[in-house]
Structure formats: C-alpha cells, structure tokens
Simulated scan of single mutants.
Amino acid sequence: MKLYIKNMVCIRCQMVVKAELKKIGLPYTYVKIGEADIIGNVEREQLKQLGLALRKTGLLLMDDKKSILVEKVKSAIIELVHYTEEQIKVNLSDYLSEKLNYDYTYLANLFSEVKGITIEKYYLTHKIEKVKELIVYDELNLSEIAYKMHYSSVAHLSNQFKKYTGLTPTHFKMLKNKRRDTLEDV
C-alpha cells in the first residue's frame, strides 16, 4: 500500500517517517520524498496513529487524488533541483509528463489551481533557493554555480536571481558575509 505524505521535502523528513513507521510496527519497502510503500495491509487505527504522529512534525498523510498528484509534481521538482546532479535531457514539461504519466497541460492546470502558482515558477523558485544555498556555502564561484545549476551563462543566472530576489548574486553574497560577525567581534 502506498502512502502519500505532504511537506516531505528532505532526507530528514524521510528519517522521521521511517522512525514513525517502525514505532507503529508498519514494515515498508521504501520511503522516499512524498511517499512510503507499506508491506501488507494497514489497519485504520495504525493509519490514524501514523497521521497524528506525522502531523506533530509538520507532515500530513494525504488521500485526495488531486493533492497527491500535486505533491508528486512538487517532489519530482525538489528531487530534480536539490538531489540530482545531472541535467534533464528534455524540457521540464516533458520530464514531468514522462515521470508522472500525465499530460503536462493537465498537471500544469491542476498545480496552478491547487498551489496558486505555475509549475515553472515553483521550479525556478527552487532553483534560486539552491543557488542561494550554494552562494552561502561559498565553495563554488558564480561560473561554477551557473554550470552546476544548468544555466546557459552567469548573466542568465544573475538576471534570474535578481528577478526573484531583488538582489544580484554578488550583493546577496556580501549581505551574507555582513550578517555574520565573528565571535571575537560580538
């Protein structure tokens, strides 16, 4: 039985779900972003108990088909942006259609209806958040970040970053450095 879980966006969330499943005594084949595959039948009381435990951590069990599909779109985008190094060989619409076995127009309309933003905007917002993370880590220069995040150029990255944040990547980096004081200066 597959369970679909809302707000499950990171490895830590997966660990929480695994721990709760173990606590309740529900064996599973896998737990990944947005879903868990449970072995065998789940009793109503176990499902209720799991739902309550997950809710305490900000995660929600879902049973509405439209919400589940929207979560699958979100999970696919999060996985693509945050956990995959390779660039997709097709455009985002084809990637999502292929991965989820739905027509992209249907996915896009449903996503916009439920989330209030387009899939493209959601995707770009996640890309910019990943760029911010990479800037803060300060391990890569902007050219390397642009390459890693599959931008055609540093200029393209900078323009999109400014459009979404109001700041250039360089200005964002300077602000990051200004926000932190060394312990000796406090």
Rank of each mutant, 00 (worst) to 15 (best):
I77F: 00
T168Q: 09
E86F: 00
K176E: 14
E120G: 07
E71G: 02
V70D: 01
T170A: 09
I88F: 10
S67F: 14
D63C: 13
I5N: 04
S97G: 00
K89I: 14
Y122H: 00
G58W: 01
K65S: 09
Y30A: 03
S93Y: 06
Y104F: 15
I38V: 04
Y104R: 02
V131H: 05
M149A: 04
K163D: 08
K65I: 06
K18E: 01
D63L: 12
I5C: 07
F111T: 07
S93A: 07
R55W: 10
L59G: 01
T29K: 13
L100I: 02
D94C: 15
K89M: 11
G25N: 11
F111D: 13
S93V: 11
H150V: 11
R180C: 10
R12C: 15
L157E: 13
N7M: 09
I39Y: 12
A146N: 00
V9H: 15
H150Y: 12
V154M: 01
L47W: 04
L183D: 05
F111K: 08
G51L: 04
M62Y: 01
R55D: 09
K56Y: 13
I88D: 05
L100F: 13
L167K: 09
K99Y: 01
D103K: 02
C13S: 06
E85M: 14
N177L: 14
V17K: 08
E79G: 07
K89H: 09
D185E: 14
S67V: 08
L124D: 12
I117T: 10
K132S: 10
F111L: 13
G116H: 00
D103Y: 06
L142M: 02
T57C: 10
E85C: 15
A76V: 02
V73R: 13
H171K: 12
T84E: 15
N159D: 08
K121M: 13
Y137I: 14
I145F: 02
T118P: 09
K115P: 04
M174N: 09
L175R: 14
Q87W: 07
Y137T: 09
T125E: 14
I119C: 03
M8T: 07
L96G: 02
T57K: 13
S67N: 14
E20A: 15
E43A: 03
E184A: 15
P27Y: 01
L175F: 06
L167G: 03
T57R: 09
G116W: 06
N101G: 05
R180V: 08
Y4R: 01
A19S: 12
A108T: 11
K65H: 04
E79Q: 09
K173T: 08
R179C: 08
L80Y: 05
D181G: 10
E35F: 13
L52H: 12
V16I: 12
I33M: 06
L54Q: 00
E139N: 11
Q160N: 10
I117W: 10
L167D: 13
I68D: 02
K115E: 12
R12S: 08
L96T: 03
K162M: 12
K74D: 08
G51S: 10
L134S: 04
N41T: 14
T165K: 03
I128L: 07
T105Q: 07
A36R: 01
V16P: 09
Y28P: 03
E86V: 06
Y104E: 01
V81T: 04
K6M: 04
L50V: 02
E120A: 09
